[in-house]
Design a binder for these strands. Structure first.
Lengths: 159, 159
DNA sequence: ATAAGATTGTTGCATTTGCAACATGTATTT
DNA sequence: AAATACATGTTGCAAATGCAACAATCTTAT
C-alpha cells in the first residue's frame, strides 16, 4: 500500500499576477534602457521618468514627488540634484502646511528635452498601442489600479 | 493675434501601461518584502522566488535559470551560492549540448520551506484573487504576455 | 591542425537603491 | 513654557544589481 500516491501541491508565487507583472515590468525597463542608450545621452531613464512626472505635476515638493515615483526621499533628492545641475528643473523654497519645503518645477530646457524624447519614442509607443484594443487596455489599467489600491490598504509605504 | 493659443502636448511615458506596470510591480514587491520581514527569516524574497522557480523546473542549468528569473548569470550564481549553503538546493555537474554545466535541484529541505511559506502566504493570495473575476484575470495575463512577446522581438536580453 | 568564435560560470567593480541616523523647523501635549 | 512628537530634506552606509573581463571548454573556420 503506497503511502504517497499524490504529490503535495501548493501555491507558487511565480504563478501569481504579481510576479507575472514583475517579469513584464523588467522587460519594459530593459527596453527603455536600451532605447535610451541609442537615443539619449543627456539624462538617464530614471531622470527622464522623474522629469516627465514633474512636467505633469507643477509645484510638487520633494516628498510628494517621492510618493509619486515610489522612491525614498534620499534618492529622489539625488535625482533632483542631477536634473537641477543639468538645468532641466529649478528648485525653490516654499511652504506647505506652514512648513518649509523645496518645490520643483520644470524649465523650458527640460520641456524641450521631454518633447524631443517624446518624438523619438513615438514609434515604439505606437507599436505598443497597436497590441491592444481599447477594451483590453481599459481592463488592464483597471486591474493594475485594483491591485495597487488593495496593496495600499495592507502595506505602509513610509516615504 | 496670439501666436501660442494651444499648449504643446506630447506623449508622456508615465501614462503608458509600461510605467503603470512598473509602479504596480513596485507595490507588489514592497508587500512581498514586508510580509517576509514578519513571516520568514531563513531566506530573502529573492531567494524565495528563485527557489520557487527551481521547484517548478527540474534540472535547470544556471544560465537557463537566469533567463527565467531575468537576472544576469553573476547574480543568479550568487543567489544559488546562498541557497546551496543553506541546504535548500543542490548543484551538480552535468552536460547540455555536450557542454559542462552546473545544474540545480531543490532539496527536501527546500521543498519543506516552500510549503511552509505557501501556507503563510495563502491568506494574502486569496485576498488578491478575490479582486478579480476569471475573465479579467485571463485578460490581464494575456495582456502581460502580449507585452513580453512584443518586447522580446525588439530587445536583446543577453543573459 | 591551428586559430577564431561561442557557451557557461565566476570575479571585480561601479552604479543604484533603500534604510537608518541626523538636522531643522513645526505642531501638539502636559 | 518645556517636552514630545511629527514633517521634510540630507548624509552615510550596506545590500542588490548589472556590466565587463576572465577562465575553462567546446565548436567552427581556414
Amino acid at each position: 500500500m503506497p503511502t504517497e500516491i499524490f504529490e503535495k501541491k501548493f501555491m507558487h508565487y511565480i504563478d501569481t499576477p504579481s510576479y507575472d507583472m514583475e517579469l513584464t515590468s523588467k522587460y519594459c525597463k530593459t527596453l527603455l534602457v536600451q532605447l535610451f542608450d541609442k537615443i539619449c545621452c543627456e539624462i538617464s531613464p530614471e531622470e527622464f521618468i522623474v522629469l516627465d512626472t514633474i512636467s505633469c505635476n507643477k509645484g510638487l515638493c520633494q516628498r510628494d514627488l517621492a510618493k509619486l515615483i515610489l522612491k525614498d526621499r534620499a534618492n529622489t533628492g539625488r535625482i533632483l540634484d542631477s536634473l537641477e545641475k543639468k538645468g532641466f528643473i529649478v528648485r525653490y523654497n516654499d511652504t506647505k502646511n506652514n512648513r518649509l519645503v523645496r518645490k520643483v518645477d520644470i524649465t523650458q530646457n527640460g520641456l524641450g528635452m521631454l518633447e524631443k524624447l517624446a518624438l523619438r519614442f513615438q514609434p515604439y509607443h505606437e507599436q505598443m498601442c497597436k497590441l491592444f484594443n481599447e477594451e483590453d487596455l481599459l481592463i488592464l489599467k483597471a486591474s493594475l489600479k485594483k491591485i495597487r489600491d488593495a496593496i495600499s490598504k495592507i502595506v505602509e509605504l513610509q516615504i
